[in-house]
Design a protein around this nucleic acid. Sequence first.
RNA 1: GCCUCUGUAGCUUAACGGAUAAAGCGCUGGUCUUCGGAACCAGUAAUGCGGGUUCGAUUCCUGCCAGGGGCGCCA
Length: 613
Amino acid sequence: MNKTTNTPAGEVDSKLEIENSLKRAIKDLAGLEIEPVVNVQQDLGKGDFSTNAAMIAFARVKGEGESGKKFNSPADLAETIIKKLQQSEVSSEFDKIETAAPGFINFWLSNDEIISQMKTIFEFDKTKKRISKELILEFGDPNPFKEPHIGHLRNLTLGESLARLFEFSGVKVIRANYQGDVGLHVAKALYGLLQNQKSHLRQGSGGQAKISAKGGSASGGKNQKLDGRTLEDKVSLLAEAYAAGTKAYDEDESAKKEIMSINKKIYSAIASAEANRQNDPEIYSLWQKGRDWSLDYFEILYEKLGIKYKSYYFESQTAPLGQVITEKNFPKVFEKNDGAIIFRGEKYGLHTRVFITSERHATYEAKDLALAILKDENYPKASSIIMTANEQVEYFKVLLKALEMVDKRIADKTKHISYGFINLKEGKMSSRTGNVISAFWLLEEVQKRIKKDFKEVPVEVLEHLAVGAVKWSMLRFSRESNISFSIEESIDLAGNSGPYMQYTFARIQSLLGKGKNTDFEANPVKNLDPQLLALGRLICQFEIHAKMAADKFSPNILTDYLFKLAQNFNAYYEKEKIIGTEKELEKLFVTKAVGKVIKKGLYLLGISSPEKI
RNA sequence: GCCUCUGUAGCUUAACGGAUAAAGCGCUGGUCUUCGGAACCAGUAAUGCGGGUUCGAUUCCUGCCAGGGGCGCCA
């Protein structure tokens, strides 16, 4: 009877089955071809699934059914559909199927079905997903020579969570990182470095507030002391140099010329020739050094956040290729204007953009064109998603249009998704570089504040809590919305927060440890009382929410669901004693399932769940 | 100027065209013989303004108002 038990995606299948049966029923009854939509019920008082298909069908047939059958109202049609469904096999999963005004059809899963679906939850770690697709997900994309800040934190957190959500729905994900190691911003930083080289490189920058990237053991982590200086100091040196370079570029005409010349030198150094590098060995080696520092530093952040990239791309690599591709597609796709090679986006209602500057440098756009082609060479079967902040949405429309004209096949499998900015609710909380919050600073600050209240918590756990708090506070908002970030709220341990979830999980583990019998194989659970059943029904919605979160690129669907589940469990916990009661077995069965779902859910968000806090 | 996104309780946010617009924080008042109180319960309060489409609109269209982002040599 339970066809769904052999697949971990139990209720995803129930949903599909209902949709298919509905489709057939509506075709038979009303002679209509429609794609019925079945939703998970938010309000469990109305069943587990619902559909508005009868209302939609009614509007389409205007009451007149197949072979002259008349329907008086959507509710009337709904009733007829239900009768039809009850004759089909879907009905075996449900206790009750009924209509609700003005024409909804609601489905109640049977108790057996709920219990059997809950059992599949215990098998999460054992079941292997069938890989159906391959996807290259580009996220992170920091610019070396700049400091990791709170925006990177949102990008990295969101990207990693999406990667895990995709994996959960059977996609092989290649995490890719594309970094801007050439360009004007680099030239500015190098200019700043050159200006301060003598004083700074020898003596150290002393007196700086220390930001810590400790705990990292990625490439740079183990030998942070190079030249008698920590990696943090080196990176803060870069950040200062960048700030100084930017200022000089804006204010000083000769500095501007100098920076542009540095830019040119780096481009020519990467373009080919050893000879070019020999021309300016000082700048080239400084560039390499700064680039290495910066990349190592970001590695520490990735490790702290639990991210492992598979693939790294650099603009120093895409620039030469981008130039070739752009020129090859002139004049088919691109045209010349004032010595630059441009794409006339206006023809398609988009912006016109420069691909090759009159200085003959590939811009961001030409480089991205090359990147798409490189990715396709490396992973021909994979489709491609690029995630950036939403300031780039219109830019990517232009890019994808140009790509379509250069290579339609690649354009068709490439998609851009974006996320909103972070504004600071508490005003400017400057790290040393100005009006941005450093990623490391924030993580450390959150950790310090948690520690203040909970001195007995061990350091490793403290770090998980801090990362969990920050990640949750970024993921619980919808992806597209600009968020007004509050440090106070991100470290609030109460309410809708990462630590609330982690705490709930730890408490569940403690309960399970105290229980006398948690062997549900030997003592199968057969019945649940109404309160436990209510929790069970919520538990059964896990996979469908995880899948929805993946489909819509929206981890907040999952945070909402998990928080609701934790809330419901905590309310039950307060009301009902679990250990040492008559129904301990049933209660622990549900408790364990809640714990499994929270742990898996947090994992999909990139958040760890310590067993003990 | 053109393009684009956003406007929901005091604040920060949810809501797949659906059912009584959902939470957290705040505030008010409770639980307390703690299976881990980082908890729980109750109360408080909202869709910028005007039209339209729909059986049904926070959601779609349109006008206005307000704010953010973008617009050929940055990334």
